[in-house]
Amino acid sequence: MRATIATWNINSVRLRVELVAAFLEQEAPDVLCLQETKSPVDKIPAERFAELGYSHMAARGEKGYNGVAIISRIPLEPLGHEDFCGKGDARHVAARLPGGVALHNFYVPAGGDEANRDTNPKFAHKLDFVAEMADWGRGLDGPAIAVGDLNIAPLEHDVWSHRQMLKVVSHTPVEVEAFEAARAAGGWGDVTRADISPEEKLYSWWSYRAKDWALADRGRRLDHIWARGGAAAVPGSSRVLKPWRGVEKPSDHVPVIAAFELG
């Protein structure tokens, strides 16, 4: 079967429940992976999503912080989570899709403002988290898809200015090296960039701080879709849905979507 999978850092699922509902109605993905839900699992508005046909969910949550959820209109088999860095925070959840494909939803730490692991514990946490993703990826077996807000823009055209961003957290060389090591360790392919040329500027996040985000267009591609082990993405199906940044009370991220043949 063919299924579309979307990923979106929603920046509070309860605050933006109707925005999520509008997205589900308009874009109708089969599966939506949310990050930064900022909600305990029992407070996620699952009934609202079920009204729209999305009656399956696997989630982890915290009050006011982090949080990841997979909501789906096709059956899911929850697969639990990994506790990266042993902090107990809600940054990973997994489920098995029809056809046996494992789906992993990640929210990688942002890393704070200073790109120095010795003086910034948040940056150290980020680097350690991504290193553990590499170790975890080496042990994977079988087809899998990984999505989420990975908080790293690895390529030159994943940021508005490669030169000016080299010392800014999310695009520093040490982060990019760790990101690519984790991707290689798991045998992951970058689904979005397989469809959209690396020479094309492509962003999924624009800061709230900009007076006119669209005019400034100083974005970063922080949200990713990866696939491995025979999980077959449909060529040409990738989209980054920039218009969702321009809606009323938006998230600072936009949805990223791709289709897969699940077998």
Rank of each mutant, 00 (worst) to 15 (best):
M1T: 14
A178M: 11
L202C: 04
R209K: 14
D149K: 08
A3I: 03
C33P: 11
E36Q: 06
V159G: 05
P78L: 03
D223E: 03
A95R: 07
P121G: 06
E62K: 03
A134E: 07
H125I: 09
H171E: 08
P29Y: 04
A134T: 04
S161H: 04
P109R: 03
E180T: 09
A28V: 09
D113I: 12
P98S: 11
R14Y: 11
L140N: 13
V240R: 01
Q26H: 10
R245V: 00
I5N: 05
Y65F: 15
G236S: 04
P78H: 02
H125L: 15
R183P: 08
P109T: 10
D190T: 01
E180Q: 12
V147K: 01
V108R: 04
P98M: 09
D217Q: 14
E200N: 13
W160G: 10
S197Y: 07
F179H: 06
E77I: 14
I44K: 01
K126D: 03
W160C: 05
A231E: 04
P75L: 06
W188K: 00
S237P: 10
E114K: 14
D83V: 02
P45A: 08
H157F: 13
E177G: 07
L52D: 00
L97E: 13
L24T: 00
C33A: 15
A216C: 00
I71W: 07
L15W: 11
E51Y: 12
E248A: 11
N120D: 12
W226A: 10
G142R: 13
A144T: 10
H56N: 09
S207Q: 01
P109G: 08
L34C: 09
A214L: 09
T119Y: 02
D42R: 01
L19W: 10
H224S: 09
F179C: 03
K87V: 12
D89G: 12
A46H: 11
R245N: 08
H81G: 04
R14C: 14
P109Q: 01
A214P: 05
R239E: 03
A69N: 06
A131K: 14
G61A: 00
S207H: 08
H125F: 12
D158P: 01
E261P: 11
A210C: 02
P250M: 00
I196D: 02
T172A: 03
D141G: 12
P198D: 13
F179V: 05
